[in-house]
């Protein structure tokens, strides 16, 4: 486990890996936050507006998962 605190000294590698990790974290937070909002009775347009994306985009990304999880979804 030598050098575990700073395994990749090149700065670009660390910075690019941070971008990839932040995207993963953002996706994870989005999944959790959208589910929380829909369980709390938010509508697709409200969630879409909060995320700054279209209703179609948020629906396409999350509807199947939330339906499978048994979340009651508002039509509007």
């Amino acid at each position: 486990m030598s050098g575990a605190e700073n395994p990749v000294p090149q700065e670009p590698a660390d910075a690019l890996a941070a971008v990839a990790a932040l995207r993963r974290l953002a996706d994870r937070i989005e999944d959790a936050a959208v589910e929380q909002a829909m369980r709390a009775g938010w509508s697709w347009p409200q969630v879409a507006e909060a995320l700054g994306v279209t209703r179609q985009a948020v629906h396409k990304k999350h509807a199947k998962r939330l339906i499978a999880a048994g979340v009651t979804l508002r039509r509007r």
């Binding site: 660390d14 890996a17 990790a21 959208v34 199947k64 998962r65 999880a69």
Partner: peptide, 26 residues
């Protein structure tokens, strides 16, 4: 560890958002 380490490089601790774990994809 790699995930946490890479986030830390951007100054973000993994524990920033304490949201419930989302349901898995269908």
């Amino acid at each position: 560890r790699e995930f946490e380490h890479s986030l830390n490089a951007a100054g973000v601790p993994l524990t920033t958002f304490d949201l419930p774990k989302p349901s898995s994809a269908a």
